[in-house]
Design a protein around this nucleic acid. Structure first.
Lengths: 116, 116
DNA sequence: TTGACAGTTGAACAGTTATTCAATTATAAT
DNA sequence: ATTATAATTGAATAACTGTTCAACTGTCAA
């Protein structure tokens, strides 16, 4: 039985078999794309950018970004699960702040690409 | 008429108004998240990683990643429109290669984050 | 205890997206 | 010309995602 996924023949099998072992593990690549998936949303990028300036509570962020608290909370949860932000309860409020030192570098590099 | 989006009062208006002008333009932030959206797919990340090793034609990539040529071609189109890869026709084949020097850096930084 | 406020949550909806399939273009070989 | 191969394309489908809405939890103040 031949491969059902790939519907064609490769031109350069030697090259392919040389490259194949150099590919990172599938699971790692999917973790990587999951990370980018989290960054790949306008709301979440704006949240990260805002939190780079200062920690803020959900209400502040909602006003700043002109969104409902619910929508902000949902997205903060995604960022929290991705370990990009961290939360801290103070009285009635929950304050969020950045939780990863790589994020800033990545944002800057990506900005270079976009602005080029 | 008050703001329909934000359903709440901010705790710290002063802070918000200090941060607001520091936020990059909306359009820029959305370009940024669009860029990450392109990276946020397992297939496309694998394609980029493979093309970092060597330029290849669609059939080679399909065999390497165990996918149909059609699926690969669709995703290469997305990468091409995002200016991350470039194509070059040689006889019957179309060879793809990386088209952005930032990509490698961004991939490496993101990998640091994922692997930490 | 009661009421108000801050935030979270789950379901539902609309919009988006990746793959498959079938049809098509373009090139090369016979 | 005909046939075969490489790649692209558009439509269709299924899966996923972000926001809204309503209900809920937890905290503070009166």
């Amino acid at each position: 039985m031949d491969n059902k996924q790939s519907d064609c023949e490769a031109i350069n099998f030697e090259l392919i078999e040389k490259i194949r072992p150099k590919m990172p593990e599938q699971t790692l690549l999917y973790e990587l794309s999951d990370f980018f998936k989290v960054m790949g949303d306008g709301t979440r990028i704006r949240l990260l950018w805002a939190l780079e300036e200062s920690e803020m509570c959900v209400g502040d962020l909602a006003v700043l970004l002109n969104m409902t608290k619910s929508a902000v909370s949902h997205q903060l949860k995604v960022l929290r699960l991705a370990k990009l932000v961290r939360s801290q309860k103070k009285g009635k409020n929950v304050y969020y702040s950045l939780d990863d030192y790589h994020v800033k570098t990545i944002l800057e590099k990506a900005l270079e690409h976009v602005c080029e």
